[in-house]
């Protein structure tokens, strides 16, 4: 076993290791609890989870998939930022250069594009799953609200990113998309103007969409995803854990 390896032994008993990880080898209940509670990332989970909530056909892992695609998009998105300037003179050329001269540039862009579509699909399916399993019911009402807002933010993130390649496809898709907002009475036209920074899609729109895409929306997404996951724990874990209560009562 890995644990009996003398090198591993030496490592986990070193004072440096012990200063970072404040738990022993997680092969007993106490250390398996500590490994979750003492780690800022793992502590999004409860120490123990219901077996029912782990059943693949219950959740299909759709919430996780949405979160993971967000992580993947953050990583590929940061890499893309190194090669992209949001100006109408540079944007399109940057994308062409990314695809033709940057090593793995085309792959990078493809992964960001398809990852974005995956996140939208996964988020919608996740909502459908949560609805049909009744997981929005008390005490999870508020987390459902957070989820709906997250879905809208996800659409916003995808939509703002759509303009950035500055090709015909993105230009006209955003022209069509934002013109829909203009039909709202009273607030529509000014909203459209604020979003585009002018009467039509141009340099101002590109900068605004870029700032929204790489900074504003991801920040809110990160914040709300954190609240969303934290609330899953605080509301008693996934709703599947409550199934047996129902059966006993019935």
């Amino acid at each position: 076993m890995l644990r009996n390896n003398p090198l591993v032994q030496k490592l986990v008993n070193s004072s440096v290791w012990k200063s970072i990880f404040r738990h022993g080898w997680p092969d007993n209940p106490l250390d398996r609890s500590l490994i979750m509670t003492q780690n800022v990332f793992l502590h999004l989970h409860s120490v123990k989870v219901s077996k029912k909530s782990l059943k693949a056909t219950y959740s299909f892992g759709l919430g996780l998939l949405t979160t993971f695609s967000f992580l993947e998009l953050t990583l590929t998105g940061i890499l893309l930022m190194f090669y992209y300037v949001p100006s109408v003179e540079r944007a399109f050329v940057d994308i062409v250069e990314l695809q033709t001269t940057v090593p793995f540039g085309q792959l990078l862009r493809n992964m960001h594009r398809w990852g974005a579509h995956l996140m939208v699909i996964a988020a919608v399916l996740h909502m459908v799953r949560v609805f049909f399993t009744g997981a929005y019911k008390k005490p999870r009402e508020f987390n459902w609200i957070v989820g709906v807002i997250l879905l809208l933010l996800t659409l916003g993130a995808s939509f703002t990113g759509y303009l950035l390649p500055w090709d015909q496809l993105s230009f006209w898709a955003i022209t069509v998309g934002t013109s829909i907002a203009g039909y709202a009475p009273v607030i529509g036209p000014p909203m459209q103007k604020i979003l585009l920074g002018g009467a039509e899609v141009g340099q101002e729109s590109l900068v605004r969409f870029y700032a929204l895409h790489v900074m504003v929306i991801p920040t809110f997404l990160l914040l709300l995803i954190s609240i969303h996951l934290w609330r899953v724990r605080k509301d008693g874990g996934m709703a599947a854990s409550e199934i047996s209560d129902e059966n006993e009562a019935a």
Partner: peptide, 13 residues
Amino acid sequence: FSLIKDAPLEELA
């Protein structure tokens, strides 16, 4: 999937 299918890019806007 990214190796099989490229993201679309049309003419300059």
